[in-house]
Amino acid sequence: MKQKERIPFLLLIGPAAVFTVLMTALPFVQVINMSLKDFIIGFQGVYIGLENYAVMLKDPVFWNGLRVTFELYFLSLFSQLLIGLYIAVLLHRKLKGSRFLRTILLSPFTMPPVAVGMMWLILLDPSFGPANYFLELIGLEKSLFLASPSLVIRTLAAIDTWQFTPFVVLILLGGLQTLPEEPYEAAEIDGATRRQRFFYITLPLLRPSIITATILRSIDLLRFFDTIYITTQGGPGTASTTLNIYAYNTGFVYFRMGYASALMITLMAVVLITVVFFNFLRKRQY
């Protein structure tokens, strides 16, 4: 950048930068500092170097948390991309009424997570939830949903899919609408089937949009917190204790703030690595 440009640039980003540094960098440094201490809320912390991180590697609940986090992550991301792609293609047909559907699509992900959590808590209640009524109506057995350790992750993934697939749809739809016409025209001349057109033209061209959606969803899904905090608080047992929930409980429910800080830093590193990886995938194409 030229010297002449540097000053207006700094002036423009200055307020935002100062704000970000004050509000986030400072706490961040404090949390790194806490993660190096044996620090119980209410007590004087003692520096113990990287001991918290060493303990973490031997902590079965941490590994369980990592497994739960990634199970939930892959399950949710996969279904959201798949269903999202399907709906986006469907909407791209631009029939009358597709605008109406697009409006509806906005509602789930603009709803407050607290309200969404409360809503599903009742819909899926094992004893009086209407979801079970519906299952019985079509001849299936009642389900425990969130109260079952083997179903809880799938149920949470389904709730998140309900809420955020529409968001993915809108991003992918944006991608679809900017696709060039020429490859399709060429394909038509070559007599390609619809399926071939989709797999050999649409999908590759849509890659940047898919990766954008993946990155945005990854950031939220790896830190999965809101819905769990409201519905199961990590239970039954530790079946839905994601890393974020584990870190939160360790610090704010069970006082071990030093260890909780180490967990949070680790989680942030996991998110960062994932985002950098997908960013690398996106850039590689060009």
């Binding site: 970000t20 706490p27 961040f28 974020n244 870190a247 939160y248 610090g251 942030m268 960062l272 985002v275």
Partner: peptide
Amino acid sequence: LLARMAPGGLYLLPW
């Protein structure tokens, strides 16, 4: 974007 990657709980006590 980096600031968004931190778990929200990270900020609570320092703030």
